[in-house]
Amino acid sequence: MDKFETLTGIAAPMPLVNIDTDMIIPKQFLKTIKRSGLGANLFDEMRFDRSGNEIPDFVLNQDAYRSAEILVAGDNFGCGSSREHAPWAIKDFGIRCVISTSFADIFYNNCFKNGILPIALPADAVEVLMKDAEKGANARMTVDLENQTVTTSDGESFSFEVDAFKKHCLMEGLDDIGLTMEKVSSIDTYEAQAAQARPWV
């Protein structure tokens, strides 16, 4: 997995609440057996008309935001399905960090498995960051995972919380399965005990 340490880049504003996983990657793009290539269809139904032409109003179609690496969005980002295609599409597009007041649980976890940092901040902080993102391509935001801060192009800084274990895995680019395999003897022990206690399982 790609490491995440610090990121300075363009932030795209999406001041919409409840952006769901069907918006992020509509179901017709889930019929793949690969993880790659989904960025082309990120936000597909908001981004393109039925003939495949760009919808000019959509933020990622504006020149200032085509190479955005950060997304600032409204409340409850990523609600809906468990499809990991959502973070795959975000990552494949080039976005490495999403900032909102809150995230849906499964989406939040899925981000960390794919080298994306989701940052939850209070509403007033997100409002400031949204304003900063609206300034366009010259305004670059900086996300520092080590120090757990987001800094606007004007130098205003906000601290965010992140689970220590998730932070460690993201900063080191660690693979969960590899880490768990190191504890395989605990799993073996548990499994043997559980088979005694609840043999019907």
Binding site: S82, E84, K113, I177
Partner: peptide, 10 residues
């Protein structure tokens, strides 16, 4: 509960 594909693999 629901899980993502990386968790399915896990």
């Amino acid at each position: 509960h629901g899980i993502g594909t990386s968790e399915v693999e896990h």
